[in-house]
Each structure stands twice: as C-alpha cells, then as structure tokens.
Write a protein that binds this DNA or RNA. Structure first.
Lengths: 175, 175
DNA sequence: GTCTATAGATAGATAGAC
DNA sequence: GTCTATCTATCTATAGAC
C-alpha cells in the first residue's frame, strides 16, 4: 500500500525503491525478500485492483436479469470501487509505464472486463459485439473518468456519483 | 516533440534527459541551453497542448449561438484535438508527476477550460454554475476518456469519434 | 550554440552477517 | 526475515573548450 500511494501521487519511475521501503517502515533491501523488483510490486497492485471488477462483471454476465439492469449494476459497482479506498488506486491504470510487457497480465484482465462491458452493451442495444464496441468504450471511459476527477478534485465528489455515472452510461447506450 | 513522445509512452520519471537528447539528435548537455531542466520541457508541452482548447472555449463562450450548439462544438473540437497529432500528447495530462507545484501554470489553464465547460453546461441546463458542476465533470471526463482509449487501442478509433462523443455529451447534459 | 568530460547524487539490486 | 554495507549503473546538472 505504501508503494500504491507513491505510484499514484509521484509516479512509477519517479518513485524509488528506497522511498517505498521507507514509507513501509522496512529497509530497502528487505523489499527484495518479497518482490523481485519494483515492477512486481506494481503488477501485484494492478491485479489486486482490477480483479474484483472482473469477477463481479463475469458473475453478472451469467445473471438472468435484464441487460440494462446488469449494465447499470456493473457501472455503479466499478464507479463505487474507483471512488472508494484511501488511495486513488485506479490511477495506477493511467501510468505510461504500463506499456512495458511485464504488465501484460494486467492488460489481459482489463481486456476481460472490457469484453463483459461490450457484451452487456450489445445486449442492451440488440446489436452485434462489433457494433457495440464504440458505445462500450464510451461507457468504460465514463466510469474511468472518475479516476482523473478524484485526482483533480478529491473533495468535490458527490455522494451519489456512482449512480450519476450509471445514469449517464445508460443514456449513452440507449441511443 | 522527442520528449513528448517519450513522456507519453515511457512516463516522465522513467524518461532520462539523456534519452530525450538522443531522440532529438543533440547531446544531453545541449538540452540545458534551451531548458533549465526536464520539468520545463514537460511544462512547455502541457501549455502548448492545452492552450488551443482554452482559446477556442473562451472564444466560443462569447458567441451568440444557442448553448447546446456551442457545447457540441467545444466537445467535438477538443475530441478532435485529442484524437489528432502523431503523438497522443493528451496523455501528458495523466502523468502523476503533474502534482508537482512546478506544473501549476498548466493546472490554471485547465481550470479555465473546465470553467467554460461548466458555464456552457449551466446554460444548456438552465441551472446554476454549482448545479452544473457534476454534469460538466462527466462531459469533460467523456472527452478526456479518448486519451486512454487512444493509448489502449490506437488502431480502433472510429472516424466519427468526435461526433460520437459530442452526441453522448449532449445526451448526458440533456437529462 | 554545441560539444566532451565529469562532478555529485541517487538509482536498483546483491552479498552476507545475524 | 531483516539488516548494514556496498557494487555498479545511471541520473541530472555543470564546467569549460571550441
């Protein structure tokens, strides 16, 4: 969590292993007993952060509820996750360093999440998966815009922000 | 531009002044003849990137057109800017290092942009500036979601993506 | 205005005692 | 499992020749 806080606020390349260790209350060398390097810490944080969403999404995809209800639930769930927690861990998704191939396992998980969004949007629109792609991107983008908003104005988030985002998402999909 | 490319793809803290200079075809020391440090390069890139949007927005704010037309134009303009250019320079906005006070001039410019969005949304909704804040955040978030989308799937952007985003934005505002 | 050379600090990672 | 000590590499920035 010490690393998560620093990666989100200072950046990955700008955070030294010494700074992480100091924030965690251990020596810099001790860190290497648990992680082979800085990249393994970030990967662990990324997977921990995205997995609850993927699990919820795939469980929801198998539910018999109407697709609009399921999409609303998924959007609201992800928005609440991004808005909660002491740190704005969603901003780990914004790090340019994620292009490194070492973080491919995270991208695979996030791709699974997107696929579920796309299936739900297709079901809502009665369209093919291909045709649902643009709207699904807009919806996921709307959800993840909460990351930047939380960074830029952390004290101005409405209590009902997850509901607001879900409303907006459904209005986009019901074109 | 060499620095812009590297900051966007590798990150700010992960990009060395040596790497920038090499990409620009000069020596690392020569860089210091033009910039006092790496931060000044990033600041120059940020201001160059955001200023066209601010200027267009403030010019549009003084136009006699109906507010919904103006909001649509502004959203489409910003989306086209973010989607264009060889590099995805909008992703400079996502760097965690922007929290450093040296980049305050950029945040001031972006705040001016947001204020114009808020005024237009308020005019569209016939509401106060305070009440327009949440919707304006959603709209700007929708526009800027293009940054992440361009990073994650650069070859899957629709030709009419700016129009799509403008449509979605108006649907959110016209609640 | 551009370069080479280099200072001085800090980085990630390892060795080995306890 | 945690530490101190340290290696080697790399970093930002400066000095000074041309």
């Amino acid at each position: 969590m010490a690393a998560g806080r620093l990666f989100c606020t200072e950046g990955y390349g700008s955070t030294s292993t010494y700074a992480i260790a100091r924030a965690a209350g251990i020596s810099q060398a001790t860190m290497y007993h648990y992680f082979a390097g800085k990249h393994e810490i970030l990967l662990a944080l990324l997977l921990e952060t995205v997995r609850p969403s993927v699990e919820y999404a795939e469980q929801l995809a198998a539910s018999p509820e109407p697709p609009t209800d399921r999409l609303r639930k998924l959007v609201a769930y992800d928005a609440r996750l991004l808005a909660s927690g002491e740190e704005n861990l969603g901003s780990l998704y914004l790090l340019p360093e994620l292009g490194d191939e070492r973080f491919a396992p995270f991208h695979a998980e996030r791709q699974r999440l997107f696929e579920t969004y796309r299936e739900l949007v297709a079901a809502c629109q009665g369209s093919s998966l291909e045709d649902a792609h643009p709207a699904a991107s807009l919806v996921l983008g709307l959800v993840e815009s909460l990351i930047l908003r939380r960074r830029n104005e952390p004290h101005m988030l409405e209590d009902d922000i997850a509901t607001r985002i879900a409303d907006a998402a459904l209005r986009i999909v019901q074109a």
